[in-house]
Amino acid sequence: MRLGTRRSALATTQSTWVADRLRALGHEVELVEITTAGDRDRTTPLATLGGTGVFVSALRDALRDGTVDLAVHSLKDLPTTPEDDLVVAGIPQREDPRDALVARDGLTLGELPAGSTVGTGSPRRRAQLEALGLGLELRELRGNVDTRLAKVADGELDAVVLAQAGLSRLSRTSVVTEVLDPIQMLPAPGQGALAVEVRAADTATRTAVAALDDADTRACVVAERAVLAELEAGCSAPIGALAEIVLGDDGDELSLRVVVASLDGTGELRRSATGLPADAERVGRALARLLIEDGAADLAPLTPSTPNATERDQ
């Protein structure tokens, strides 16, 4: 099987992780590097460059033209609108979905003095940091993990915020000065999870990849992405979501928390819901509609779908 991957260190590490698990199941796997628009342009803010999907299109093109048989994505990069000819056949067990702070002098978020410069390329992170009212100076940030970390090491920035999952996969967690509590900052929908996408008609590859699927992770990310789908929002919208499988009175229960915030931090809505893991899609969409009823569209650039919209497969 030819596995398509972006060329960054994080992407190839993630893809190698998937390839090794497929090899352990007896499959032969070859990595094929693909360059995406997001890799070619590392300076333009992602929301301007194209937002959700900027790291995905080239990999999908390679799938469609037969250059590769499967592609590994960071799930948070995938648009929520399904593709008729492609399917996410496997979502392996999720890494830590939280955000992480890497700051000078080992400082935590609360210890950074007012006026400290903090780098992030994420509207979601920016909005939630602003809402905390810490007086931080937020700077636009692009580039791979090492490029971002170098901004702190060289003294150009006082801190950066990155996904804990990426740092863990690269064995770089020693640089983390604080893993941010979701009470302070909810992660991006799907953060920490991988999506292994294949051609819908390729039943052999679909079957092989399905062996990697983790049911709890899939339920959680389906709920989180259902929020985005119902709001018709992408990575340019400051939305955080985190679903977890917890033990309820009658067994496993899905617990979902969502935040919609204004970019300048002047307002935010946080809401939560619970339901059965099997109802993940419904739980996410219902919570999104509640957010709209409570005024989410006044805070963020959303285009909510109608309440009776057909639910999409995730």
Rank of each mutant, 00 (worst) to 15 (best):
R40V: 15
F55M: 07
V227P: 04
G190V: 00
T274D: 05
A131N: 02
A208V: 06
L132S: 08
A273H: 10
G26K: 08
A280K: 05
V260P: 05
R7M: 11
L269Q: 14
P187H: 01
A201P: 13
P301H: 06
L109E: 05
A11C: 09
G234I: 07
V283I: 01
E224C: 00
V175L: 01
Q191A: 07
L231G: 04
C235W: 00
I245D: 09
R169I: 00
L70M: 13
T120Y: 12
M185K: 03
E178V: 04
A229Q: 08
A131K: 00
A24W: 04
R289W: 05
G66F: 13
A150R: 12
D202W: 12
S262F: 12
I91K: 03
P189H: 00
R21D: 00
V283W: 01
D298Y: 13
A208D: 02
G26H: 02
G106H: 14
A153M: 04
P123N: 10
P113C: 12
E140A: 15
L256E: 07
L109D: 03
A103L: 07
L242Q: 06
E156Q: 09
S15A: 15
D279Q: 07
L141H: 00
A131G: 05
S57C: 06
A219R: 01
A296W: 14
L263Q: 13
D313H: 13
L63D: 03
T67I: 02
A261M: 10
